[in-house]
Design a protein around this nucleic acid. Sequence first.
DNA 1: ATTTCCCGCGAAAACGATTTCGTAGATGGG
DNA 2: CCCATCTACGAAATCGTTTTCGCGGGAAAT
Lengths: 343, 343
Amino acid sequence: MNFNAITISDIAKALNLSASTVSKALSDSYEISAKTKKLVVDYARENNYRPNPIAQSLKKGKSKSIGIVVPTIDNQFFSQVINGIESVAYEEGYNVIITQTHESYDVELLNINALTHRSIDGMLLSLSTETFNVDHLQKLQNQGLPIVFFDRVSDTINTHKVIADNFKGGYEATMHLIESGFKYIAHITSPAHTSITRERLAGYKKALTDKGFNVDDNYIKYCSHGGKSIAETKEAMDELLALPVRPDAIFAASDRITTTVLSLLHKSKIKIPAEMGLVGFNNTNLAELLNPALTAVHQPAFEIGKKATEMLLSIIKSRYPVTEFETVVMPTELFIRKSSVRD
Amino acid sequence: MNFNAITISDIAKALNLSASTVSKALSDSYEISAKTKKLVVDYARENNYRPNPIAQSLKKGKSKSIGIVVPTIDNQFFSQVINGIESVAYEEGYNVIITQTHESYDVELLNINALTHRSIDGMLLSLSTETFNVDHLQKLQNQGLPIVFFDRVSDTINTHKVIADNFKGGYEATMHLIESGFKYIAHITSPAHTSITRERLAGYKKALTDKGFNVDDNYIKYCSHGGKSIAETKEAMDELLALPVRPDAIFAASDRITTTVLSLLHKSKIKIPAEMGLVGFNNTNLAELLNPALTAVHQPAFEIGKKATEMLLSIIKSRYPVTEFETVVMPTELFIRKSSVRD
DNA sequence: ATTTCCCGCGAAAACGATTTCGTAGATGGG
DNA sequence: CCCATCTACGAAATCGTTTTCGCGGGAAAT
């Protein structure tokens, strides 16, 4: 608990004042004389007084903590997002409670439930791939819990959202593959219902049609858990490789899918980019060092976390109910490296 | 704050009981009759009652949260450790507050201070590379704050500690390089005063002497911030490459140093392992996919986090002061890949 | 029939801070 | 000189829970 524990009433006793006077003096109330204020403030400083945050929370009905719900933190994208979240939250005196869904709807429910019962002032979340239904979140929002989505957002809930420019990312990645001379470009992605999938897929399709290519659904594969298991990615790959006309490039739509695809290609001894071009949505800082160096759409993960937190705090601190919401789209950046460029 | 807010006195009013009776009924006190208990418990369940954790904290003097201090979370080793910490903490109803020092002693002080004032029940930490003095931590421990160290531990503070078998890791890594035919094996590591550096260095030296090699201090380079900046690693590399007899292999002592070294070797067009063998302490799951595949000493990061948390909770939950402390050493594993094996 | 005992429950204090309201004493105006 | 008005502070309630203590009433003991 609070070590260095000196309380308001300790100060009151020491100075022969009442607790209320001390409290008011510390909050610079107009009711207290300058002399008394100085007395109290000086004593408090000398004795390293810090208000007990738990007592304050109880009284004020604010916990000064925000809940985070992400699929997993052991992933460069999300750990960078969390880094951004923390940078803002800590600065503002909030602490964060991080929970992981591991892409499970049930776990997501449990976590959200646990968070609300742990007295949070607001929630930041990125939906799990299994989540279709967001009624529970809608209910929480209706009850007044500030919520901000990032990355995998909900369409139906009206609140602030922060996402990368997934459409543009998908478009540029695909366009780049086409311009590098690849003809049969496959796409491996997360479940069709998630926001990031739809947007990246739309970018992929637009690039193809813009260049006069057909969109062939056989070249689009979905991993129902966003590549959480290697098996689902392997199945997608196997199907692609068994196609009558084998793809000569793959656009992988997420961190984990990308690295798993790379790994599977290694295992199959398929040469990259000679036999198969590869572009991924990926935030690893090791992209340059991979074999081959990986062409990747990079998301401004830190900034996404930062922005989402700023928006959440703005709702939390707002005196009147917030009804005007905004969706911030942050630019992605395509880093072109060897995996997509034939010599 | 707590949404679904129904309180004990709401229940009391609804059932025509007193708050104390309800509280006791819910905690299954012997003072309450079975009939009343059932009445209360049923009503509570039906109305989805959850005790307000903040009120409980205030009353019980326990916050049910633990503080974490790590250099950074944007690092596979630490994010895996945190994953392990969370897996235990969440299970036991604790939430964790994560802070990052970014290898700065001053920030570490600030974070520790903030954490103690935020009412934590215990602290898990891995020291920053800048930290020589741990008086502040000793003071906190003396005041009764349970502390458990992991990874970078303090020698002077007597408490539970969880570390990887750094000596063995260093020994095996070096031994492997020797047995692969490398003759001039350099070591790039963190500052000499940190526990991990000393232990890994000792393993390195022991392997050399066991095989009849001389230990040459010119081949040992320290990065004063553990490789946080590329510059310090580059400086170490440059010095090594300028040596009269250039090393033909490098044993890098940490996650970040390892990947930076790999990157620098790429930039210098030095062939691995032909011109330079490389082994790192590294927890990335991409090791296999790097160019070349990276030989690495892998630490059981998740288990380290798990074990450290279990130990911390055992102190927190102990009724009497704990005076017998233990240092748990977890096995490392050497994964041999291309970067250290000449064809 | 009286005393003793225990069961089952309620009243109240406590955790530490905030906030509303009341009031003693100083000040000012008429 | 008296009443109104401030000024500066204290008492007490409050947030939601836990815990100590006390007590009414019924059962058992004498």
